[in-house]
Design a protein around this nucleic acid. Sequence first.
RNA 1: GCCGAGGUAGCUCAGUGGUAGAGCAAACGGCUCAUAAUCGUUAGGUCGCGGGUUCGAAUCCCGCCUUCGGCACCA
Length: 590
Amino acid sequence: MPEHILVAVAWPYANGPRHVGHVAGFGVPSDIFARFQRMRGNHVLMVSGTDEHGTPITLAADKEGVTPRDIADRYNEVIGDDLRNLGLSYDTFTRTTTQNHYLVTQDLFQTLYHKGYILRQETLGAFSATTGRTLPDRYVEGTCPICGYKDARGDQCDQCGNQLDPIDLIEPRSKVDGSTPIFKKTEHFLLDLPAFGEQLRTWIEAQDHWRPNVRSFSLNFIKDLKPRSITRDLDWGVPIPLPEYADRDDKRIYVWFDAVIGYLSASIEWAENRGTPEAWREWWQSPQARHYYFMGKDNIVFHTVIWPGMLLGYGAGGSYGDGRAKLELPYNVVSSEFLTMEGKKFSSSRGVVIYVNEVLSRYDADALRYFLSIAGPENQDTDFTWAEFVRRNNDELVATWGNLVNRALTNVYKNFGSVPQPGELSSTDQDLIAQVEAGVAVVGEALDAARFKAALSEAMRLAGQVNIYLSDQEPWKVIKVDRERAATIWYTTLRCVDTLKILFTPFLPFSSQRLHEYLGYEGYIAGPLEFRDYTEPNGRSHRVLTGDYESWVGRWEVSALPVGQALREPKPLFKKLDEKVIEEELARLA
RNA sequence: GCCGAGGUAGCUCAGUGGUAGAGCAAACGGCUCAUAAUCGUUAGGUCGCGGGUUCGAAUCCCGCCUUCGGCACCA
């Protein structure tokens, strides 16, 4: 029975290009998972988009003298290109500035408000004297009233560690331009999280298939829930859908509140764009559907506490719920740790960074995907170094898998031209095939459990087994004395390579597609992704990254390689990298 | 400061109660079909430190050191 699987991927923030650390956490793992589930025959809906509201984008816009919309447009395009070039197979990668997203966000806000889950409260906020814009706590600096540290931030003093309120700072100043901020009263709306505390606790406690750190972290977090502010004094964001705010442009819904709603709004957009406007309900209003969320560890509570709280509050209400069924909560929240760069935290300002588009301009997407899959921060922080990148590429990807494919294909292409007719398979041949075919289940189980390193390691181990088999059987010698036996050995090898191709496809889609073609097959097992433009009722159009995945022919099954199928002329799947690139890349960092 | 996670071979990392693992790097050997790729053998660790529970602990408990994340207006 095919299942409905929602793959909800963290929304990259559109204030700059995304670096390798970002895609290591949310991008590559989610795509591996989605591709695997599609190959298994499940109905996958993979959604995300660029997160385009919030203070950092307004600050970037001010700095350049352009509008926030300009910044969002620019980086929506850059980020979309990067994700497409990495082969991330979203059903819909959209953005938070669509009319649809505004409508869905406002429906959630209104529904929660009318159900009494949103509170109103007067607070004192800091505003810039020069721009009139709100200054988030961390953008106010001054002298710490507790320890006297001169560069304490409004939210916390880095020297004594105490939590602060910007109003308490001595001689406060704006981090942006140094001016003295103005403090004034402002009304805010707060999500009443404590109202969901008991439901959340019961629900989280039952999720014993979550990674332990995600579960225990979340349980600890809900011990002390407080109402959480969901509005900001900004003119850039989703307007507050209440009559008294209809004509005001000084207050907006806070960016994190609308960003998580993006998972729902993008699903609704996908259904609409596809001409089946109700189809999203098969994922969101069906208790059988499984929802997987992928993100970095800094985002856990948004996905295990706040967003579930919003969903619980919304229930079946609102214009999208339509009284039919409640919206479903996450099935699993797959959080990654962080990637570091040459032993240090990624930092754009300090130049400790490598952007996705830079890597892809010089290296193949599969080489980066391989590294991030085998050495990524799945269970703990891991380090990206150029030396390790080159080594993993040359000594593992090229040497083990690439070379197996290349030696097999070039030999068979040269000597037979097509899949050779085997004689009787020896027990050694049969054992090898059985071992590799067992990988379909073993690797599949690991992938289903989001254990990507284990899955890829097993696939690589099996590729190694085929290399051992070849060294042992020496078909290049056998063919001089016994052509039929050589044909049998090469047939056995190709059968294994064809099954391994399936196991590698979620990780290495580009090279797997090429291998698929070299083996003489037609159609896509991992085809092209597409951008499509959609125009909304308000006349605005935007670009969506998507693909025609239902037409792809790859299935998570063992090889049924037809004897006699003509091969196409093979080329190496991967490029070996010169050791010199390590120094070149390190020089770029400095 | 409080909460959570990590600290395992030279390097990068697996491994949650039962005689310490992988890949690479190192040393030696085989093969030469293949992107000088591959295959085999050897060597290498008091599993952060100190206590405790247990017949038995990298694995459970306590303390300490250290790294990373969270701790309502950064996303």
